[in-house]
Simulated assay, not measured.
Amino acid sequence: MRIATTLLVVLWTGTAAAQCAPDLVTLKGDFGQARFKVAVADDLAERAQGLMNVPEMPRMSGMLFVYEAPQTASFWMRNTLIPLDMIFASADGTVQTVHAKAIPHDETPILGGDDIKYVLEINGGLAGRLGIEPGTVMQHPAIGPNAALPCGD
């Protein structure tokens, strides 16, 4: 099943892999690559709202949280209605931690680590099915010129 899903994702993203757009995040790793349509939360109000009260999210969609500087990242699921995977990445877009299947409404802190600048939230369980893990690299225009996977690659 995982091989078929990975093959589908690679075929679906194939020729568009080099494109970089504000509403797209590409993840690349040993599994191949996957592309997500995202909303970007890059200010305090947007990050505070996050995906709270969102009743459903299309499969290859998510929200990218962008911080001004690397920091210790911690999330919770208050008022979040759907299970989420949280993918925590450093300033160069390298995934440091993946928290799988965060439980809706749970207020237990979810620690993503230190020196985190980007957090991608996707549907719960999808990171595991695709093979997204620490060491995977993220591509998005917000990551800038020092990205592990720069735009255009």
Rank of each mutant, 00 (worst) to 15 (best):
residue 92 D to P: 07
residue 140 H to V: 03
residue 121 E to N: 05
residue 97 T to E: 08
residue 92 D to M: 03
residue 127 A to E: 11
residue 129 R to A: 13
residue 121 E to S: 10
residue 110 I to L: 15
residue 146 N to G: 15
residue 131 G to W: 10
residue 100 A to P: 01
residue 121 E to P: 06
residue 137 V to R: 14
residue 122 I to G: 00
residue 118 Y to T: 02
residue 106 D to Q: 12
residue 139 Q to L: 00
residue 97 T to G: 01
residue 129 R to I: 14
residue 143 I to E: 04
residue 130 L to Q: 08
residue 95 V to N: 11
residue 126 L to S: 11
residue 108 T to V: 13
residue 118 Y to S: 09
residue 125 G to A: 05
residue 141 P to Y: 11
residue 118 Y to I: 00
residue 112 G to R: 08
residue 110 I to G: 01
residue 130 L to T: 09
residue 104 P to R: 06
residue 129 R to M: 11
residue 138 M to Q: 04
residue 133 E to W: 01
residue 91 A to M: 07
residue 116 I to D: 07
residue 124 G to M: 12
residue 137 V to P: 01
residue 140 H to Y: 04
residue 121 E to A: 12
residue 122 I to Y: 05
residue 136 T to C: 06
residue 103 I to S: 04
residue 135 G to V: 13
residue 122 I to C: 03
residue 139 Q to S: 14
residue 134 P to V: 04
residue 113 G to C: 08
residue 108 T to L: 06
residue 108 T to E: 10
residue 92 D to K: 02
residue 147 A to W: 06
residue 109 P to K: 09
residue 95 V to D: 12
residue 107 E to T: 15
residue 112 G to V: 13
residue 142 A to H: 07
residue 91 A to L: 09
residue 122 I to T: 12
residue 135 G to L: 09
residue 116 I to L: 11
residue 132 I to P: 00
residue 106 D to M: 09
residue 129 R to V: 15
residue 98 V to H: 09
residue 121 E to V: 02
residue 127 A to W: 12
residue 109 P to S: 14
residue 92 D to L: 04
residue 98 V to K: 10
residue 119 V to M: 05
residue 110 I to F: 05
residue 137 V to F: 00
residue 147 A to V: 10
residue 132 I to E: 03
residue 149 L to I: 01
residue 148 A to P: 10
residue 110 I to V: 14
residue 133 E to C: 00
residue 103 I to T: 15
residue 130 L to C: 10
residue 147 A to M: 03
residue 108 T to G: 04
residue 147 A to G: 07
residue 103 I to V: 15
residue 122 I to A: 02
residue 95 V to K: 07
residue 114 D to K: 12
residue 101 K to Y: 01
residue 119 V to A: 08
residue 112 G to W: 11
residue 97 T to N: 10
residue 92 D to R: 04
residue 122 I to E: 00
residue 147 A to E: 12
residue 134 P to M: 07
residue 134 P to G: 07
residue 103 I to K: 14
residue 141 P to K: 08
residue 126 L to W: 06
residue 148 A to Q: 05
residue 136 T to V: 12
residue 126 L to H: 03
residue 147 A to S: 15
residue 139 Q to W: 04
residue 112 G to A: 05
residue 110 I to T: 04
residue 122 I to Q: 03
residue 129 R to D: 13
residue 149 L to S: 02
residue 97 T to I: 04
residue 145 P to W: 05
residue 139 Q to A: 08
residue 136 T to I: 05
residue 94 T to I: 08
residue 102 A to C: 08
residue 115 D to G: 03
residue 129 R to Q: 15
residue 149 L to V: 01
residue 141 P to M: 08
residue 111 L to E: 14
residue 99 H to E: 12
residue 100 A to K: 09
residue 127 A to L: 10
residue 128 G to M: 03
residue 125 G to T: 07
residue 115 D to T: 02
residue 137 V to M: 11
residue 95 V to C: 09
residue 93 G to A: 10
